[in-house]
Computed example of a mutant assay.
Amino acid sequence: MTIKPFDFKLKDGRTATILSPREEDINGVIEYLKISAGETEFILRYPEECDKYTYEAEKALFERKNASEDEAMLICIVDGKVAGNCGIQFSSQLKLRHRAGVAIALCKEYWNLGIGTRMFEEMEKLALNKPYVQILELDFVEGNTRARALYEKMGFKITGRRPSAICLKDGTLLDEYMMQKKLVRN
């Protein structure tokens, strides 16, 4: 599914654009994936695992997501660079379609500028356009207090924990927390 691109002002006065990914964004998205993977232990990939993100693979992913009725990927562009992305996935299974999964990541240089909040607002708007969706869900890794604060600000609550779900290169085991937000329709 695609959205109409829109601009908004960042906290520092710059303009950002949120849009569905296009072919001309592929190289920027690949670069963003590599950078973001190296900036924190809370992203579920290491930079060396980003080699699978080829131009062809990303082009196919963008085409699939943009053509889908059950998922969307959005990217945020600031000063010509990909600052981050987010995604939402809806289920077509009758017993699960009341739930939608969301995910988000930003490069560190774009933290605290309002991008995460704006991306969540857009994902919630997409969910509200599906009358059967009642709940948004996401996961976060133990210790990611910044993400947790954003999620709680956006109305998510912890609903469970997966002990030792993440294993870092040094053998450190981290828990993963599940969160949900119940959607409110007017």
Rank of each mutant, 00 (worst) to 15 (best):
K4V: 08
F6R: 11
F8W: 06
K11Q: 08
R14F: 07
T15Y: 05
T15D: 13
T15G: 05
I18H: 02
S20I: 11
S20K: 08
P21L: 07
E24R: 12
D25V: 06
N27P: 02
E31Y: 08
L33D: 03
I35C: 03
E41N: 09
R45H: 08
Y46L: 14
P47G: 05
E48R: 13
K52N: 06
Y53I: 02
Y53S: 05
T54K: 09
A57G: 06
A60L: 12
A60R: 14
K65S: 15
I77P: 01
V78K: 06
D79L: 00
G80R: 10
K81V: 09
G84F: 03
I88L: 11
Q89Y: 04
S91F: 15
Q93A: 14
L94D: 14
L96K: 15
A100K: 04
A103H: 08
A105T: 14
L106D: 01
C107L: 02
N112P: 01
I115D: 00
E121N: 11
M123W: 01
E124D: 04
L126I: 14
A127Q: 07
K130G: 07
P131N: 13
V133T: 10
I135Y: 04
D139E: 15
T145W: 08
R146M: 07
M154Q: 13
G155K: 10
R161A: 09
R161H: 05
R162K: 14
A165P: 07
C167V: 15
G171M: 10
D175E: 04
Y177C: 05
Q180N: 14
L183F: 00
L183V: 00
N186K: 12
